[in-house]
Simulated assay, not measured.
Amino acid sequence: MKQTCLVILAAFGAILPAMASGAQVWPMKPLRAVVPAGAGSTVDIVPRVVFEQLSAQLGQNIVVENRPGAGTTIGSTLVAKAIPDGHTFLVNSSAHTITPALYHNLAYDAARDLTPVVPLGITPQVLVTSPAKGYRTLESFIAASKARPGAFNFSSVGLGTSTHMAAERFRVSANLSVVHVPFKGGGEAMSEVMAGRVEFFFGPVGLVLPNVRDGKLIALAVNSAKRSSALPDVPTMREAGLSDAEYPFWFGLFLPAQTPRHIVDRLNRETLTALQAPKVRDRLATLGIEPMAMTPQEFGTYVEQEFRVNATLVKTIGLKLD
């Protein structure tokens, strides 16, 4: 009997390390990256730049699944309700922290059901206008707008999008009376500005940069804390005299809540490593994406602050979508 017990104990001792090792194995199959925006959008392009390198590091394919619609909530709901095993994750942008303030009947809780893992980068949004309008500084633009209350308009890629909210934060900070004209895409929103039918547009650096370089648009200011490396001669809003108009556009990865911490931490580490690869870093730089290295805890704190900023802004402008 004693010998039998020793055999059982020995076998159990051999099994325990294997069980512990098995618990740490991740990923065990291809990863599913849900992008709550259409193919070809900035939110879709940025993670694809990173995923080739990340996939090689993890030894598994990363399959991108575009689930656009309903202000990014369709894709976000899918991930929030996914099995928390680390094989399905969300790629979202600043929109993640805007939607809770806009929609009161969401099928998920953005703050509790999705865990911030790692930011992929951040980009300023640029206030652009037509060269034909004659504005060369933000100060002259604001003065012209205040001289004609309600006469100026701005374009966006839709109600409640970051391009809309950036313009609203600028409007509130500068105390302007302007009219919002939403469009379905960035190309159309910019074209209307270039044609002179719309006064201004806020867009991510990567979106507006080609037209700025070609002289089709004039960049008056960026809404980040520091100047963009892609547009070093363009001042920040603060440099131009506005103290509360910052509203950059960021991208990040989120996992379902209850995902094991070791998976969250590893995905964070591997992604940060991928972001340091020269080909990834250089490609993101051409898109105007600046580094934003953070731990999961730091990113979580940042996201919490963004929830508060957007809740306040939405309340201030009185915007509701449901």
Rank of each mutant, 00 (worst) to 15 (best):
M1R: 11
T4A: 14
L6A: 05
V7S: 11
I8G: 01
F12N: 02
F12V: 13
A18G: 01
A18V: 10
A23Y: 01
Q24T: 06
W26V: 00
P27I: 06
R32C: 06
V34A: 05
P36A: 03
P36S: 05
P47T: 01
V49F: 09
F51W: 14
L54N: 10
Q57R: 15
L58Y: 02
L58R: 02
V63R: 15
V63E: 13
P68N: 04
P68L: 04
G69F: 06
T72C: 03
G75M: 08
V79I: 09
A80R: 08
A82Q: 04
P84E: 13
T88P: 01
L90G: 00
V91C: 12
P100L: 00
P100K: 02
A101D: 00
L102S: 07
Y103R: 03
N105V: 04
N105Y: 14
L114G: 00
L114D: 01
P116Q: 12
L120C: 04
I122C: 08
Q125T: 07
Q125C: 05
L127I: 06
S130W: 13
A132L: 09
Y135E: 09
T137P: 01
K146Q: 15
A147Q: 11
A147R: 10
P149G: 09
F154Y: 15
S156G: 04
V157I: 15
V157A: 10
T163H: 09
R171T: 15
S173A: 12
S173E: 04
A174L: 14
A174H: 13
V179S: 11
V179R: 14
H180R: 12
G186T: 10
A189K: 11
V193W: 11
A195T: 08
V198W: 07
V198G: 05
E199Q: 14
P204C: 13
L207H: 04
P210R: 14
V212N: 01
R213C: 08
G215A: 11
L217G: 02
K226P: 00
L231V: 05
P232T: 06
V234D: 09
R238M: 08
L242Y: 14
D244E: 15
A245C: 07
F249E: 05
F249V: 07
F251P: 06
A257Y: 02
T259F: 00
I263P: 00
R266P: 03
T273C: 02
A274E: 07
Q276K: 15
A277S: 15
L284E: 11
A285T: 09
T286W: 14
I289C: 03
P291S: 12
A293R: 09
Q297G: 13
Q297R: 14
V303D: 01
E304Y: 08
E304K: 11
Q305T: 12
E306W: 08
V309S: 14
V314D: 02
V314Y: 05
